[in-house]
């Protein structure tokens, strides 16, 4: 049923996929190498670089910080984003158009500029401690996902269902929680996942908001690399890829992976 693909074009696409996936395979290989430097193909096989991660307290601590910041930042963005997305869809005609533009500003403004400005005005200027600044920064960075992805789900939601619930005597907040929320579940999950992944991998904002004792895993990886170029970095990278695999498995189990193409 599908149109034929010219063999040259097909071969080209195959090469592109090789280009996309080979570097990740190389990282996995390098993480297993029994050498003190990074190399591929691995020479000898060992898991000691994975063990090494857990011996370096900086990796442990920053990993914990990264997870905390990603969870709290994402949660905060959803708490702000879901009501905003709801209002934007429910009162579409009555709310000004710039409001929806405002919520995508964190994508529009260069991240590195946002990180720098946040440090300058909020952390130093306003005196907000580093850790809450980090969470606030990440929450704003991922806010567009909360508003847009949840908004896309809400756009497909028939609000007369909500009116039906209210007419049957269900109070507004309860209606939202029991009628609207279950129907936009897919959007909320997708927003959470995209936001979490974005936050946990973020560099450009975190790089400004690390202080004594507080850093995130990607920043720690960069710092480690400046001093040591050993397979530990590769094994940390593999663990981060496993997080990605885990997330994709969650997506597959809850929404189906085809969701990601929409």
């Amino acid at each position: 049923m599908t149109t034929r693909i010219h063999p040259v074009l097909g071969a080209f696409a195959a090469l592109v996929f090789l280009f996309l996936l080979a570097p990740l395979v190389i990282i996995v290989g390098a993480s297993l190498s029994d050498t003190s430097y990074l190399t591929f193909p691995p020479q000898g096989l060992t898991l000691r670089w994975f063990a090494n991660i857990f011996e370096i307290s900086a990796f442990r601590n920053t990993a914990i910080t990264s997870f905390q910041v990603a969870i709290l930042g994402t949660a905060l963005s959803l708490l702000m984003g879901i009501p905003a997305a709801y209002a934007l869809n429910r009162y579409r005609v009555e709310l000004p158009k710039w409001l929806s533009t405002l919520f995508v500003l964190p994508i529009l403004v260069p991240e590195i500029v946002f990180g720098f400005s946040l440090l300058k005005s909020i952390t130093i200027g306003f005196g907000l401690p580093v850790y809450p600044s980090l969470i606030l920064g990440h929450a704003l960075l991922v806010l567009p996902y909360s508003v847009r992805v949840v908004g896309a789900s809400l756009a497909a939601f028939d609000f007369s269902v909500e009116e039906a619930a209210i007419s049957l005597g269900c109070p507004p907040l309860k209606t939202f929680l029991t009628v609207v929320l279950p129907n936009i579940r897919a959007g909320v999950i997708a927003a959470f996942i995209l936001a979490f992944i974005t936050s946990i991998n973020d560099v450009s904002i975190s790089v400004f908001l690390t202080g004594p004792g507080i850093s995130t895993l990607p920043i720690q990886i960069l710092a480690h690399m400046e001093q040591f170029f050993d397979p530990t970095i590769a094994s940390v990278s593999v663990l981060l890829m496993l997080v990605t695999v885990g997330v994709m498995a969650i997506v597959e189990a809850t929404l189906g992976l085809t969701f990601l193409t929409k």
Binding site: I26, V203, S237, T244
Partner: peptide
């Protein structure tokens, strides 16, 4: 098609640091 899309999504969900780091291994002196 689904396999191809997964193959494209996976790198996208992998962090910038990890993906840039791969090229250090590929293009480095050794």
């Amino acid at each position: 098609k689904s396999i191809a899309i997964i193959a494209a999504v996976f790198p996208l969900l992998t962090g910038v640091v990890v993906r840039s780091f791969a090229w250090l291994i590929i293009l480095g002196k050794n």
